[in-house]
Design a protein around this nucleic acid. Structure first.
Lengths: 124, 124
DNA sequence: CAGTATCCCCTACGATACTG
DNA sequence: CAGTATCGTAGGGGATACTG
């Protein structure tokens, strides 16, 4: 589908559009939400429990943004107290490996990063 | 080197430390700075020219943060008007493939994302 | 249950001016 | 050249209260 950037390590076409897409998808809470939804569909309050530190407001905003960008789907189940289920969309699935790679990267480099921080802070 | 998270897709140890590391390294300008430095070391004003939209202030802040986290090195060359060179550090190199993957992901999915946005916006 | 609606703060960022 | 210093603004996000 895309052989645009196949062997083109240097000249990226980094428009602000591309950067803003990453901004929207890699923002403060998105990774954790996507991560959670990659495992299985979740209801709104299930997500709150899965990510306890997030506020309702931020969770709503994150879900709306991800839905708008086609990363997740919002499914309304018309029961009496309405139920809403969020599930990862096909586009969101394409991010899964990247997200996993990012988490693994943090896990494996955090110790060295912290050492670097300590060095930097005491030099300063 | 790390077989910690090799076959562990579900239970990440997502402490706030890990998330904050991503926040510091994947912030608004970091990707572009790292990307540029991965190609070759750059002086301060070279970086400004490579990323024209960034302000001095933001570039300085980004460079300091990346240096503090061990991603880049700041090398002072004591000439009369002092020269400073920034270069990618070993830790920063470990991010290179991830960054490339992220850019490629944006490039290949942006059209679909925009279609999703259009759909979302007209439904609303 | 799944959200809105407010208020409020804080800091990220831009713009501009200045400096060793 | 490679930055600091200062001012000002927009909005991201928390806390809290309310609703179909």
């Amino acid at each position: 589908m895309d052989e645009t950037a196949t062997s083109n390590p240097v000249t990226h076409q980094l428009t602000s559009e591309h950067r803003r897409l990453l901004d929207e998808v890699l923002d403060k809470w998105s990774l954790q939400v996507l991560d959670t939804l990659c495992e299985q569909p979740q209801r709104f309050n299930e997500l709150r429990r899965a990510i306890p530190v997030i506020t309702q407001k931020s969770l709503t905003a994150t879900l709306r943004r991800l839905e708008r960008n086609g990363m997740i789907e919002r499914i309304i189940i018309s029961t009496r107290p309405v139920a809403v289920e969020y599930r990862i969309a096909a586009l969101g699935r394409t991010l899964q490996d990247l997200i996993d790679a990012l988490w693994q990267w943090t896990a494996s480099t955090l110790p060295e990063v912290q050492a670097a921080r300590d060095r930097f802070d005491e030099e300063n």
